[in-house]
């Protein structure tokens, strides 16, 4: 069980953001504790991606605050988010297909020699280390990532997020494009990261995988938060009802 007695790793307090007249996120508060996986669920357009982009630095909220380890954080762009050890694994993976795993892992944060030149050997050595931990079967260090399978590409994207001491990880539909074996691999990696005390926001459409991978699920509808529930205390039908009807289950409503 996750210990929720201390200070939350992330607290999104009363976040609102509107585009023109549309309230994409309407006074939503969600928190995340170390070693916890919180699933974000909802229809397309429910506002879950928009909410999480306030944390990854892609958007700036109109009102409300982000607290990291109990302290107020200012996040204006993706680089600010990286400074708070927030890493994002995008649904598209955001990999440069023509470069190899090491180049992608260090993209924008290359290791350089004293002369200012890129230190390829050092980066490959580091990549071998981190991949050895995440995906020991990974061998294709010198091939462009376009030559990798979906699961291997996913593990490169995950490696990039965890290598730089991520404390907070945002995963946007990490298993959407994967087969069963690769989905299993992602599940194992999430378990491994949990053990290291990393907090994870998992955006997903699949209720079953949320129930399997997450500790809590936050359900959104029309920009509002329907509720945050312990996945062990509800059934998949309960969660579906929250997503579709926007109703919190009877036995938890009290």
């Amino acid at each position: 069980m996750v210990d929720r007695s201390g200070t939350p790793l992330v607290e999104l307090r009363d976040i609102s953001i509107a585009f023109g007249g549309v309230k994409a996120v309407d006074h939503v508060s969600v928190d995340l504790f170390p070693g916890e996986v919180v699933g974000l669920l909802g229809h397309n357009g429910a506002g879950k991606s928009t909410l999480i982009k306030c944390l990854s630095g892609a958007y700036r909220q109109d009102t409300g605050d982000v607290y990291i380890n109990g302290e107020k954080a200012t996040i204006n762009n993706p680089r600010d988010a990286r400074r708070y050890n927030i890493e994002t694994i995008y649904q598209t993976l955001a990999l440069a297909d023509n470069l190899d795993a090491a180049s992608n892992l260090f993209l924008g944060r290359e290791i350089v020699t004293p002369l200012g030149l890129v230190d390829e050997s050092a980066m490959e050595a580091e990549t071998r280390k981190v991949m050895g931990r995440l995906n020991p079967n990974f061998r294709k260090f010198n091939a462009p990532v376009s030559a990798l399978s979906g699961g291997q590409r996913q593990s490169v994207a995950i490696a990039r997020a965890v290598y730089f001491n991520a404390r907070i990880l945002i995963m946007d539909e990490p298993t959407a494009a994967l087969g069963p074996a690769e989905t299993q691999m992602v599940a194992e990696i999430i378990q491994e990261l949990k053990k290291q005390g990393i907090g994870i926001f998992l955006i997903d459409h699949d209720v079953h995988s949320v129930k399997r991978l997450c500790d809590r699920a936050a359900v959104m509808k029309n920009g509002e938060l329907v509720g945050v529930v312990d996945v062990d205390k509800v059934s998949t039908d309960d969660i579906l009802a929250m997503i579709i009807a926007g109703k919190k289950p009877e036995h938890l409503a009290a």
Binding site: P78, T88, L95, A96, D97, L107
Partner: peptide
């Protein structure tokens, strides 16, 4: 080369 391979990824990498 990264921008040529995937401009969006390059942008998101800062």
């Amino acid at each position: 080369f990264a921008t040529g391979g995937n401009p969006d990824a390059a942008e998101l990498s800062g």
